[in-house]
């Protein structure tokens, strides 16, 4: 397997280089997509399927699609020659940084990761058996809450900056409709499954949300879903709902137990599932909106 790993590492480097050195935007984005997939693969190799899934879906897929869409709307890049000296300096500095990092990695004292025993010890009290979910939604739920805020902030940002009009994809042909008829319910199903699975195995709200978003995007490209036609309020409310549920749950827990985000004894799983459910919907809607670039205020002309 070591050979595969080495090849994978080399391939990642090559993909990164091709993304950076591509003369036009499309080529660069293609390089980026490949790069993202390879990285997702490497996550799998590192026994982190959650991360691999998220990377593939969001980091590579959604981002790549966004980039492609943006590239189509932009003027061709100006011929901006970077001076040779600057390039050389950058290379030198990058090598220096890399060298420093390499030294650091070589020198790692092999510190005991304190979390493993802690998580293992407390997993029983967390209400779920998947340690990742336990960390995300119980032990370090505060981080997750704030990450949802990041997502929302990104959405607000896009809303503030977004283009004046939204793209109106052409209605796809009759071949596409049957596909959608299967795809859409399936994505909901898969999302639900992932959500439920998250309690015991890799999976959870982020993955479920990504899948849900995939389904929605399929509808969108098929012309079945036109966010621009939907009044702004509900969509935004959908985006915010999950986060709001999370925050409300945090406060409710505080009211009930006296500690923020400390779920009542024994009911951990219910709480986590409820929160995750909200998050799934929210993430799906948010990712969709991020993609379609809805202006705040929605379809208000």
């Amino acid at each position: 397997m070591i050979v595969f790993d080495l090849m994978l590492a080399a391939a990642i480097l090559v993909a990164g280089w091709s993304a950076l050195s591509a003369p036009d935007r499309t080529g660069a984005i293609a390089g980026f997509l490949v790069f993202g997939l390879l990285v997702a693969l490497s996550w799998v190799r590192l026994d982190a399927p959650d991360v691999a899934l998220a990377e593939a879906a969001i980091g590579s897929g959604l981002t790549g699609a966004l980039m492609l869409r943006a590239a189509g709307r932009m003027a061709p890049p100006a011929a901006d020659r970077v001076p040779r000296a600057q390039r050389a300096a950058a290379a030198l500095l990058a090598c220096g940084l890399a060298g420093g990092l390499a030294v650091a990695v070589m020198d790692l004292p092999g510190a005991t990761i304190v979390y493993d025993p802690l998580v293992r010890a407390d997993l029983g009290q967390s209400g779920v058996s998947n340690p990742v979910t336990a960390v995300l939604l119980n032990f370090r739920a505060w981080d997750t809450l704030l990450e949802m805020a990041v997502l929302l902030a990104a959405l607000v940002l896009v809303a503030a900056l977004g283009p004046r009009g939204t793209p109106r994809p052409a209605r796809l042909g009759p071949l596409y409709t049957p596909f959608l008829r299967i795809m859409a319910p399936l994505s909901v199903l898969v999302a639900g499954h992932l959500l439920w699975l998250g309690a015991t195995a890799p999976g959870g709200a982020f993955q479920a949300g990504a899948v849900l978003c995939g389904g929605l995007l399929a509808l969108y490209f098929g012309g079945a879903l036109r966010p621009a036609a939907v009044p702004a309020g509900p969509l935004w409310a959908l985006c915010a709902a999950g986060v709001a549920v999370f925050a409300a749950a945090a406060l409710a827990a505080e009211v009930l137990t006296g500690t923020l985000l400390a779920y009542p004894d024994g009911a951990d799983k219910i709480w986590i599932l409820a929160i995750e459910g909200g998050l799934t919907v929210s993430i799906g809607a948010t990712l969709l909106l991020l993609f379609t670039g809805l202006r705040q205020g929605g379809a208000r002309a």
């Binding site: 600057q86 950058a90 500095l93 220096g96 940084l97 420093g100």
Partner: peptide, 19 residues
């Protein structure tokens, strides 16, 4: 333009110094 260079330089310098 040279901002990236500055970031890299700073990080590299500090990292090297730390080593």
């Amino acid at each position: 333009q040279s901002g990236g260079l500055a970031i890299l330089g700073m990080a590299a310098a500090l990292a090297l110094a730390a080593v």
